[in-house]
């Protein structure tokens, strides 16, 4: 490579490296703002800001969903397998909302430690499978002959 080209190559590598470092440091500094949601442990541990709208993510605990009979209000618990938080929400849930599903709730934590949500989003994982295969992967009920 002739010296001129080598210089240009070095300048370009420097440019890419320099901008990467600058943006990398910015993202590192803003990490808390980039995270879309807090985990339930962070909320119980007091890491999340109080009295402001925020998002909380976790798995819907099995058998914890309670629906009101006279309104759209629903109460359920979500967990990150360390801490559980109760969520209250009134409105229409996304199709994927179910027990054991990851969800993200947006709202405020009230004085009793109950999360008053005004929006619930469902997360799904990257594993896709046909219904028949999902059926065979379910644990078989025992004691049935």
């Amino acid at each position: 490579m002739n010296p001129k080209r080598k210089t240009r190559l070095l300048i370009i590598l420097g440019l890419v490296l320099g901008s990467s470092i600058a943006i990398g440091l910015t993202l590192f500094a803003l990490e808390q703002n980039i995270n879309l949601f807090y985990s339930t442990s962070q909320i119980v541990g007091g890491e999340a800001p109080k009295n402001t709208r925020m998002r909380m993510g976790g798995m819907v605990v099995e058998n914890s969903i309670k629906r009101a009979t006279d309104s759209l209000q629903i109460t359920f618990k979500i967990t990150d397998y360390a801490q559980e938080v109760t969520v209250v929400f009134t409105g229409i849930l996304p199709d994927l909302f179910r027990e054991g599903q990851g969800i993200i709730a947006q709202g405020k934590l009230d004085a009793n430690g109950v999360f008053q949500a005004d929006e619930v989003l469902a997360k799904h994982d990257e594993n896709y499978m046909p219904p028949e295969i999902a059926e065979t992967m379910k644990p078989k009920p025992t004691g049935v002959k």
Binding site: L36, P94, D95, A122
Partner: peptide, 12 residues
């Protein structure tokens, strides 16, 4: 929209 429940979210 149908799966998460939102058209757009400001996630990373």
């Amino acid at each position: 929209k149908p799966t998460w429940g939102a058209w757009w979210v400001w996630d990373a």
